[in-house]
Each structure stands twice: as structure tokens, then as C-alpha cells.
Simulated scan of single mutants.
Amino acid sequence: MDILFVADPLERFQIYKDSTYAMMAEAARRGYTLHACEPAHLAWTGGDVEANVRRFTITGNPADARRSPWFVAQAAAPRSLKDFSAVLMRKDPPFDMEYVTATWLLDLAERNQGARVFNKPQAIRDHSEKLAIGEFPQFVAPTLVTRDAARLRAFHAEQGDIILKPLDGMGGMGVFRVKADGMNLGSIIEMLSQDGARSVMAQKFIPEIQLGDKRILLIGGQPVPYSLARIPQGNEVRGNLAAGGLGRAQPLTARDQEIAATLAPVLAARGLLLVGLDAIGDWLTEVNVTSPTCFREIMEQTGFDVAAMFIDALEGAVG
């Protein structure tokens, strides 16, 4: 297979923790040819969707997860996306208009040229990583999405202890806890909503966050048997690894398995080959579809080869 990774620049990869690198390394181990580009390199020429891509190979000792450089790349050259066996959209958020434009271009490549894109671009756009939980209310703690300050204040008064966050945040950015005393509630609402211009998500605070914000991976409609519990450190309320959380791999609980078994076939049928569910305690909090991570941590702590499971699923999807 020839595989194109649409991702951040290879030079910025931190391979010791990068899930996209884990995919690349497993694909290379199987003898597949690797190419990379950034969303900015995509172009519609009036006929084809093409990109200036770099063919690259992984170099150095695979056991050295902090080696640099870790790849050798050829000069970039234009290629049509239809020429690749698979195109993997692995660009990290933010999910801004340029990200949306990239999915539109990938859509054209899919529909007009028969390119094989994973995750499916339309499915990425259709699943807001915060709002997608609304399709599965049986697994969701009390939640409100609005830009109405009065509604947010009333939700706080009802629940007493809440989390507020933006709908387009990542890595724990912009996440606030407001306890029963309501300290700074008005200021937080004004800032997150930009004085009523943007919608905000409010959720009842789930005390089980102290045990970790669990990442549950779904691959090809099947759950990885381990989650990564990202445990807040110190006085933090955020478990995100980017916010300093400590990652601890653990077997899925019965509730995790119930959530995964319900969501996995639905999401896979929509063209979402890889999904990262977030759960705190018994509650589903997010459905991540843009660039789900945590492969490396689970692999290193449990020995379960998440990357191999992913490439197996990719081979099955490509046929």
C-alpha cells in the first residue's frame, strides 16, 4: 500500500508519544510506502484534488523513541490523492475553517476521484467532538450547551458544581470548574461565550475525575481492551496529558464496554475508522474523531499493539 498521512509537519512530531508515528512505524514494518503532507498542501486543480507530498522512510533505531532525526524525506512533488491506497487525515485541531476546508477538499477527492480517506471527511465534520455526545443521552451526565448567560447561571444554580468549556477547545484549553459558591461564574461565562457570541458547554462536575479522564479507543468498530486514564495532578481539574495529566492504562470497565459496544458499530458505519471516546466515571463526555491519540501510552504500559490493530483495520477497510 501507498499511504498518505495528512498531518502536522513531520519535523514537529514527538515520536515517543505520537499516535500517528505509531501508525507510520507499523505500516513501514509491513513494507508499505509512506508519504506525508499538510492540509495547506492540498489543492483542487479544477479536476483532481492533489497535494505536494513527500515520500519518506523511518530511520534510526526503533527502540530509541526520542531520536532526532527519525525520518528521511524526498523532495515534495504533486500527486493526485486517488493514487494512494489510503489517505489518513491526522491533522490535529484546532477545528477551524481551514480544517473544514481541508475536509471539503478531501470530500472532492473521495466523491470525484474515488480516493479512500480515513476518517471519512463528512463524518469528521458531522461529529462535533463535544456535541456528538447528544446522540447518546443515556450515557451523558447533566449537560447544557447554550450562549445564553441566564441559562448557564440557572444550570449552575441547579447543579451546584459544574464544568464550563468551549465547544472547539482541545487539550483541556479553556476548561473551568465553578463550585457552589459561584466564584467568577459571570466572568467565565463572559469570556467563554465572548459576551454571548459563542456557545458554551456546561456539565455537572463528575467527582470521579480524580480517577482519570478515560480515553477509550474504537478501531474499525471494535474497542481496544484498555483505556488510558488521564489523571489530574496537583490542584488541576483537567486530566488531559497536554495539561499535565498522568496517563495510566487500565482494562475497560463494564460501563466502558457498554458505552463502546453501543457507539462502535454506529460510528464505524459512518466511516469513522478511529474514534477516541472520553469518559469520566460512568459518563461519556466527548467523541473525538479528528486525531485521536493515546496509542503509545497504552502500547508501552500493557503490551497491547494498538498500532497493529489500527493497520489491520485499515487493510480491511481498503480491501
Rank of each mutant, 00 (worst) to 15 (best):
T103H: 11
T103I: 06
K82E: 10
V87F: 09
L106M: 13
A86Y: 11
L108E: 07
F118N: 03
N119C: 02
A86N: 05
T57D: 15
F155I: 01
L105E: 03
L131M: 13
T57M: 10
A123R: 09
T101G: 00
R116S: 06
P142E: 13
Y99M: 12
R90Q: 07
I124Y: 04
F136Q: 00
F95Q: 04
V140H: 14
H127V: 09
N119W: 01
D83N: 09
H156E: 07
R90L: 08
L108D: 02
D168N: 13
I163E: 07
M170P: 00
I162F: 15
T103D: 10
L167A: 11
I163Y: 09
E158G: 01
Q122W: 02
I163T: 01
I58Q: 04
P93M: 10
P93Q: 14
D92H: 02
H156Q: 03
T143M: 15
A73Y: 04
T146M: 11
P69W: 12
T59W: 01
P137G: 10
T143H: 08
F136D: 13
S80C: 09
P142R: 14
E135V: 06
N61V: 05
R125W: 13
T143F: 01
W70L: 04
P142Q: 11
A154M: 03
P94M: 14
L152T: 01
A65I: 03
S80L: 00
G114Q: 08
S80P: 00
A141P: 05
L88K: 03
A132V: 07
N112K: 12
D126A: 12
F136E: 09
E129T: 04
D148G: 00
K82M: 05
R151H: 02
F118W: 15
P94S: 13
R66N: 10
E158L: 10
A149F: 00
W104S: 01
I58V: 12
L144C: 03
G169M: 07
Q74D: 15
A75T: 11
A102I: 02
L144S: 13
N61M: 08
T103G: 05
E129S: 01
L88Y: 00
A141K: 00
S85E: 10
R66C: 07
P62D: 12
D96Q: 08
E98H: 15
N112F: 03
A149H: 10
F139T: 05
R147C: 11
G60D: 11
T103K: 05
F139M: 11
I58A: 02
P62V: 06
I163F: 07
A73M: 06
L167P: 09
L131N: 07
D126V: 02
I162W: 09
A73N: 07
V140T: 03
I133V: 15
F95A: 02
G134F: 02
A141Y: 07
G114N: 08
L106K: 08
M97T: 08
P121W: 15
E98R: 09
A123K: 05
R66D: 05
W104F: 15
S85P: 04
A77E: 12
Q159K: 09
N112T: 11
K91I: 03
V140F: 12
K130I: 06
L131Y: 01
D96A: 10
N61C: 05
K130F: 09
T143L: 06
